[in-house]
Structure formats: structure tokens, C-alpha cells
Nucleic acid binder design. Structure first.
Lengths: 189, 189
DNA sequence: TCATTTGCCTAAACCCTTTAGGTAAATGCA
DNA sequence: TGCATTTACCTAAAGGGTTTAGGCAAATGA
């Protein structure tokens, strides 16, 4: 009997690949066991339960996204930074649709606290340093950008913008132009 | 043996209530059968399968949302209309979280074509008549508004904006102000 | 080398989905 | 009103996912 060498990390990594291959909601402990050619019950030594696997994939995706964001933001400011971070989310979702879906998972407060969630808001806040916003407008703007990035990417991935002119790339560019203009002319109360 | 009076319509209606009660992803044919105190197999005379139920709930939610939107828009224009439609989405999601989640379901092209989806984009387009945008900027703006509404509501429901100042209502108001300002000063290419 | 720990296994219970085929209630026509 | 048909719900069963309990063999380490 040769051992498969399962670890929680490897399982979550493979789960992320599985998610990208077949969709996040098709990720099951059973499918993962099949991938390792191992019996289902064996995974339960490494995973508390099915939810645990999904949460793990979500946390992995949030970290990867934050890492990419940090890299993209390095040395950029203003609109350049805005565009770079926005494209990180969009590109990641296209390259890793399953992981991106995982990143939208509703986390428990504990999991959320341990996640890269705060890095994400920090990065958005960093972008706003290139614009002239004071609190609490900065927070409003962070939330707006988060909403647009997430909303656009998820509608685009759902096919909402395909099969109609103008193409989605064009809209994306113009929306980033518009957001930049808005941040430069943020309306006072 | 007293009959329960099941019909596809009643099942989907009850499925929508179930979704609001326990969450859309907890909606199962089994749970629905329990609610009617009927055996599971009995539902399969009215429902093709489990997916069919979920799609039905999604279509119901999209119709309800479109109906509310149409009512809200009647007699309004400009920022007034913008705010009204935005609040329709946000309020609906709060009142009917399960249905709102259902409305995000990825539909097949046929289901999507038969859905109220086009009514939604038409409503957003109607709002833009109060602003001075020509094609293709109108389409870009429709997509932006859709992204913000959907993105904000889904992040807010996920708890993203709770437990931090300023409160979410304040941000929502300021975002609508900002979008109004942006639409009035949409940047040229 | 032998004891301990670790990794994967079998077995079994439970829940959800879906289909096939049956019976009783409702309906509708003479 | 009586009977045939249709309709509504049922039982049974197969297939798949989740999860726990308990077992044996491989790896580790004294």
C-alpha cells in the first residue's frame, strides 16, 4: 500500500484546481478523493468537513489575489494604480473562475478575520492616496471601488455583457476612466 | 388520502419562501416536500428536476424585482429615478435574501432570454434618459450602474460593510450622489 | 527491534436526487 | 348517475455525497 501523501495544504491546492476545472459548486470531498485516487474517508483526517475545504479554497484565493494586487500596485499611483488593481481582479477571475467564485464565499467572522480581506481594503485605500479624499469619503470610495470591481467581474463572468455591443473590454476601459474622473471630482456633501 | 394541491407555481412560490427562510443554497426538493408534508417523488410530477426548481425561483425573483423597479420608476427622472431604482435592488435583497441570491443564478441562454433580464437593462437605460449620454456611453453607463448596484448589495449582504464606520446607509447615499455627479459629467473619450 | 504514531482503509448511517411503476382521488362524458 | 380516464401522490429502489467509527499497515524514532 503506497501512501498518497495527503496534507491539508495539498488538498486545498488541488481543491482550487478542481474548482477552476469544474466550477466551485462542483467541488466535493468525493471528487477530490477521486482526483487523488484515494477513498473519501481518507480526506477526513486532513479536513474537518466539506465546508472546511471550501473555506480553505476561499482563503487561498483571497491570499493569491492580495499577493497579485500588492505586486501590481508596487510603484504605481493614481489612475495607473487604479487600473492595475482593477485588472488584477478581472484577470484573476478569468484565469481562475473557480477560485474567484470561492473568494465570494460568505465566511464566518473568524475565518474572515484570518483572511486577506483587510489587505484588500488596504490596497484600495492605498490607491486613494493618489486622490484628494478625506475621511469618511475615503471609506465611501473604498466601498464604491470594491462594489464596481466585484460587481463588474461577476456580471461579466455570468455572461451579462457578452453578445452585445460594445464589447466588454471597451466598457471596462471607459468605466475605469469614469471612476478616475469621479475620484478626482468627488462631490462634497 | 387528501391531496395537497401541488402545482408548479405553488412549488416555486414556496421554494422562494424557503430560500428566504433558510438560504438559497439550502433549497432542495426534499426540504420543499417536507414543507408540503408530501413525499419527495411527488414533486417530480411538477418539477423536471432540482435545477428546474432553482431556475423557477430565479425567474420569479427577476420578475418581482422588475415589477418593483417599474413601479418605483413611474413618474420619476434624473437622480430621483436613479435613487429609486437603486433602492429597489437593495431593499429587495434585504427583504428577500434568498430570492435575491436566486436572481444571481447563472441561467442557461434560453432561460435568460425568457427572463425579465431585458426589463432590468431597459429600466436602467430609462434612467439615463435624464442624463446627457449618447451611445455607446449609455451602454457603458448601464453596465456601470448594474455593477455598482449588484456589487454593493452583494458585498453589503455578505457583511462586508458591517462593524465598521461609517455605516452602510451613509455610504450608500454618498455613492448615489457620486454616481449622479458622474453621470452629469461623464468623461469624453 | 519494537512501540508509537500516522495515513489510508472498510463499513455503515444518513441525506438528497431521480426514475419506474402503482393506487386512489378527481374529472368528464354518456 | 355510472364508468373510464386522467391526475395526484405513493412506494421502492438505485446512485451519489457526507461523515463517523474502528482497523491495519506503513513510517518514525527510541
Amino acid at each position: 500500500m503506497v501512501r498518497a501523501g495527503l496534507t491539508t495544504t495539498r488538498l486545498i491546492q488541488a481543491g482550487a484546481e478542481l474548482a477552476d476545472d469544474v466550477g466551485f459548486d462542483q467541488v466535493t470531498v468525493s471528487a477530490l478523493a477521486r482526483r487523488f485516487d484515494v477513498k473519501v474517508a481518507s480526506l477526513y483526517s486532513h479536513l474537518k468537513n466539506s465546508q472546511d475545504l471550501k473555506t480553505g479554497i476561499a482563503l487561498l484565493a483571497l491570499e493569491e489575489l492580495a499577493d497579485r494586487g500588492a505586486t501590481a500596485l508596487a510603484g504605481r499611483a493614481g489612475k495607473d494604480a487604479l487600473t492595475a488593481l482593477a485588472n488584477v481582479y478581472r484577470d484573476y477571475a478569468r484565469e481562475h473562475p473557480g477560485r474567484y467564485a470561492a473568494a465570494q464565499l460568505r465566511l464566518t467572522p473568524e475565518a474572515a478575520a484570518a483572511s486577506a480581506g483587510s489587505r484588500h481594503s488596504q490596497m484600495t485605500r492605498a490607491i486613494l492616496r493618489g486622490y484628494d479624499l478625506t475621511e469618511p469619503d475615503q471609506t465611501h470610495a473604498v466601498r464604491l471601488l470594491g462594489s464596481v470591481f466585484h460587481g463588474y467581474v461577476s456580471l461579466e463572468m455570468g455572461g451579462g455583457f457578452s453578445h452585445s455591443a460594445p464589447d466588454s473590454q471597451e466598457t471596462w476601459t471607459r468605466i475605469l476612466d469614469a471612476l478616475d474622473a469621479l475620484l478626482r471630482n468627488w462631490p462634497a456633501r
